[in-house]
């Protein structure tokens, strides 16, 4: 999440630890969708994603008392989820990138699109994107999803994945290059000035 969210997350964590369960509810609501989408794309199986999702939050709940605000809450949360996925793949003696068919058993549900037409466009885009993401090497996919779903800063992704920042940036760049080759240009080209 962005820095505004990071500060707000820290406040919510403190409020929860001071005995306010509603603060936790807000935190949960903020990260429910991005975290679940992240897990779903990594393990590509709904049941496993739900198990990992629950395990992640249980670890968060039991670990919050010892949580130190060194990084952002989102990095901590996604870090736990990421390591959960790694363990999951290891236990299943398989590599999450190779063993499942692309998009198997997953819904591509667009969220808050305005009308039916817009929803259809969003659904199509999401399907294109997910299909393409599923074909990425796992290291690239992990970086890309951590960044896009969790908005985790690259420096913190590097810490979570225990590799140099430059490696993380390289993975992100290669991921974007691969996706751009796989996805029709007209479906993502926008004329807006994103950097203005």
């Amino acid at each position: 999440m962005n820095s505004r969210h990071a500060k707000s997350d820290a406040r919510l964590v403190r409020a929860y630890l001071a005995g306010d369960p509603k603060a936790f509810r807000k935190l949960y609501q903020r990260y429910e969708r991005p975290l679940f989408a992240f897990l779903l794309r990594l393990v590509r199986e709904r049941e496993s994603a739900e198990d990992l999702f629950q395990q992640t939050w249980m670890k968060v709940i039991s670990g919050l008392k010892n949580y130190e605000e060194r990084g952002t809450f989102s990095s901590w949360l996604f870090g736990i989820a990421y390591h959960g996925c790694v363990d999951h793949a290891r236990k299943a003696s398989r590599n999450v990138k190779d063993d499942l068919k692309s998009g198997q058993g997953l819904d591509c549900l667009p969220g808050d699109a305005s009308g039916p037409e817009e929803q259809m466009i969003q659904r199509e885009k999401l399907q294109w994107l997910y299909r393409a993401i599923d074909q990425l090497p796992s290291e690239q996919r992990e970086v890309l999803l951590m960044r896009l779903n969790g908005e985790i800063p690259f420096r913190e992704i590097a810490e979570i994945m225990q590799c140099p920042l430059n490696t993380v940036l390289g993975r992100m760049h290669y991921a974007v290059q691969s996706l751009k080759r796989m996805i029709p240009h007209e479906s993502w080209e926008e004329k807006s000035h994103v950097l203005s």
């Binding site: 999702f53 549900l109 969220g111 890309l144 807006s192």
Partner: peptide, 21 residues
């Protein structure tokens, strides 16, 4: 600019997913 435009689209699309547990 191209890289940034793509990322903007990808982020918007991915974060618009309605999948929940």
């Amino acid at each position: 600019r191209d890289e940034a435009n793509f990322l903007k689209m990808a982020k918007k699309t991915i974060r618009n997913t309605a999948d929940i547990p």
